[in-house]
């Protein structure tokens, strides 16, 4: 089947989608957006968290056909989403259609040795920056899902308590960090957000 929906502000179309495919599979394998991660595919780890019409969901448990006509924001579009929110656009969003990796770019993406030194000078969302600064990233596999969830937490609660952070992130498993530095990162992002206001 064919599915049309908006990803990171851009209309996208996927063809020949098998009816049992998840949104996660379509993003990763058909749209060249592998940022959302495939750790458990049963809604028990949160690594595939995306915003679906603004709401954080596990994209592994959304059938591809269910996103027809809807808006999805992935980690690849998070920086732009956060920037637009900061500029006062309602609830973030990618109205300009200029956020995230373009589909053309994404489709050109292929297996190649990753140069671990690239990625400098990239615009980051405050939560992304805070994750790096606080040491909240180790293997990084849980990171995209955590970022989407944590960004949404700070969107609705600018000054969360530690328990609020823990509750909001309780659907995201991390195996490397023991979560302490993830808590640090969210506190840091909240504090920086507070200073900026």
């Amino acid at each position: 089947m064919r599915v049309n929906f908006t990803v990171n502000g851009r209309p996208q179309e996927a063809d020949d989608v098998w009816e049992g495919e998840s949104l996660l599979y379509v993003l990763r394998e058909r749209m060249g957006l592998p940022g959302s991660k495939n750790a458990c595919e049963q809604g028990e780890c949160g690594s595939c968290t995306v915003r679906l019409d603004g709401v954080p969901v596990c994209s592994c448990l959304v059938a591809a056909g269910q996103v027809e006509g809807r808006e999805v924001v992935t980690v690849e579009g998070l920086a732009e989403y956060a920037q637009q929110r900061a500029e006062g656009h309602q609830g973030g969003g990618c109205a300009t259609g200029a956020c995230g990796t373009s589909l053309d770019q994404a489709k050109r993406w292929e297996a190649r040795p990753a140069d671990s030194q690239t990625g400098e000078g990239v615009e980051l969302a405050p939560i992304q920056k805070a994750f790096i600064d606080a040491g909240a990233v180790q293997c990084g596999f849980c990171t995209p899902g955590l970022l989407v969830a944590a960004d949404e937490l700070l969107e609705r609660n600018a000054d969360p308590s530690d328990q609020d952070i823990r509750e909001a992130l309780s659907g995201n498993l991390c195996r490397c960090t023991g979560y302490e530095k993830i808590l640090d990162a969210v506190r840091l992002a909240a504090a920086r957000q507070g200073e900026a206001v």
Partner: peptide, 9 residues
Amino acid sequence: VASPQIRNR
């Protein structure tokens, strides 16, 4: 129920 993400769906 499960997690925030699941409760959202």
